[in-house]
Simulated assay, not measured.
Amino acid sequence: MSTAPSHAFSAVETEAVYRAIAERRDMRHFRPGAVDPAVLQRLLWAAHQAPSVGYMQPWRFVRVTDDALRGALRALVEEERLATARALGEREDAFMRLKVEGMGEAGEVLVVALADGRERHVFGRRTLPEMDLASVACAIQNMWLAARAEGLGMGWVSLFDPARVAALLGMPEGAKPVAILCLGHVDAFYPKPMLELESWAERVPLAGLIGENGWPAA
């Protein structure tokens, strides 16, 4: 006799959800090829289904299809990559060996931004104003999982100056870009997160992150 909650998905459906979570990767290697417009629309739909604090829906998406504009955006990323490398000190050389973006090969490049006028939304943000960013992160994760289920790779690039990207894309005052998403076809998904494969970092054990009635024990 099944003990699954009455509202649970079927076993196959549940397994698919957990598989998408487990196999999602921050991709940096793409092969050329356009993304089917219908698939792209489904991924954006998935992003737009994300939860948002106070139902503010603060996400905005800019699809970058102009080659010159994409090149200018990539130049800003490269500038910040070099600055980040210098700031890392003794890990500079190791960082410079990492591939941090796939903007030149990905079929789609999208910039995700926080909308302007967010100060109007007080519900859920009076003491935690950063919940607008948390809401956008949920939208990006929805899109990421949907992309994995569709067999497409996606990578989140965060090496850029938000003000300069906002100016480049003509965003209104108060809007703030938070992610450059590379989306496209891949030859294979990494067997582990790329930074684990490159020995940059390892996933910490879950047990050490969970506390009961207080902060997790060290």
Rank of each mutant, 00 (worst) to 15 (best):
A11F: 11
V12E: 15
T14S: 14
T14R: 11
T14E: 10
A16N: 04
V17Q: 09
V17S: 08
Y18W: 08
I21G: 03
E23G: 01
E23K: 09
R24E: 12
R24W: 06
M27I: 13
R28C: 12
R31A: 03
R31N: 04
V35A: 01
A38Y: 02
V39E: 00
L40G: 00
Q41K: 08
Q41A: 15
Q41M: 00
R42S: 12
L43V: 11
W45D: 13
A46V: 12
A46H: 07
A47S: 04
A47T: 06
Q49M: 13
Q49R: 14
Q49N: 13
A50T: 02
A50C: 04
P51I: 12
V53C: 14
Q57R: 03
P58Y: 05
P58W: 02
W59M: 13
F61C: 05
V64L: 12
T65F: 08
T65Q: 10
T65K: 07
T65H: 11
D66A: 15
A68I: 04
A68Y: 03
L69P: 00
L69T: 09
R70V: 03
R70I: 03
A72N: 10
A72S: 12
L73S: 02
A75M: 05
A75H: 07
L76Q: 15
E78S: 12
E79A: 06
E80N: 07
E80P: 01
R81E: 14
R81N: 15
T84P: 00
L88T: 04
L88Y: 12
G89T: 07
E90T: 14
E92N: 08
E92P: 07
D93P: 01
A94Q: 11
A94N: 01
F95A: 05
L98I: 02
K99E: 05
G102P: 14
M103F: 08
M103G: 09
M103Y: 07
M103K: 03
G104Q: 10
A106R: 02
G107A: 07
V109N: 06
V109K: 04
V112T: 09
A113D: 02
L114Q: 03
G117D: 03
G117C: 00
E119T: 05
R120F: 03
V122R: 14
V122W: 11
G124E: 06
G124I: 03
R125V: 01
R126L: 13
R126S: 13
